[in-house]
Design a protein around this nucleic acid. Sequence first.
DNA 1: CCACGGATTGGCT
DNA 2: GCCAATCCGTGGA
Length: 204
Amino acid sequence: MSIIFPAKKLKRNFYTRDLQIVAKELLGKILVKKNGRKYLAGKIVEVEAYDGEIDEASHTFVGLTERNKIMFNEGGYFYVYFTYGAHYCCNVVTGRKGHGTAVLIRAIEPLEGIDAMSVNRFGRKLMNEKEKINLTSGPGKVCQALEISKEHYGYDLTGDKIFLLYQPKIAENNIVTTKRIGIKKSVDLQWRFYIKDNPYVSKK
DNA sequence: CCACGGATTGGCT
DNA sequence: GCCAATCCGTGGA
């Protein structure tokens, strides 16, 4: 795992800060999933923030339920949900206990375990560069490529099976801020952030 | 290249 | 019973 070896795992105090700060700072960090002896890893290039206190699109807007309860925990836990009868999406819980905030990981740039990701997505190794762009450029794709599903619900990101590695902050002028994608409520909040000009972003 | 709609499970009212 | 924080294939320009 040469690319990510020197980097340090993010600790609890990274995640327990304010939602919007964590969302932007997640850009550029490396998401790592350990599968047996193999590591699958990629750089986070696109995220969206969700906050149940003021945001009708957030799964926590309705209050505490069995599905969303991990979002009310303190930051640094993994919220995985199933949607459209087919796809899993994964989130990083942020902030203080009781707040119901999380950041959806919408896209990563594959760094490590690319052949394994391709097998998970397409049932075979990569055939061309265009397929590489299609590997993890969307929230459902990220979970399929990394084999993330309901069994990872609530996982502690300070553990050693799924975690994030420190990388320098992306400069403010290289972060694009837009409306969120694929929702019908609170559509005007500018809570989507992505790395400018990165080809693995799901949509301009 | 872009727009559109179908698939399909399970959370929630 | 309704419908979603998506993806992919299809069809037309």
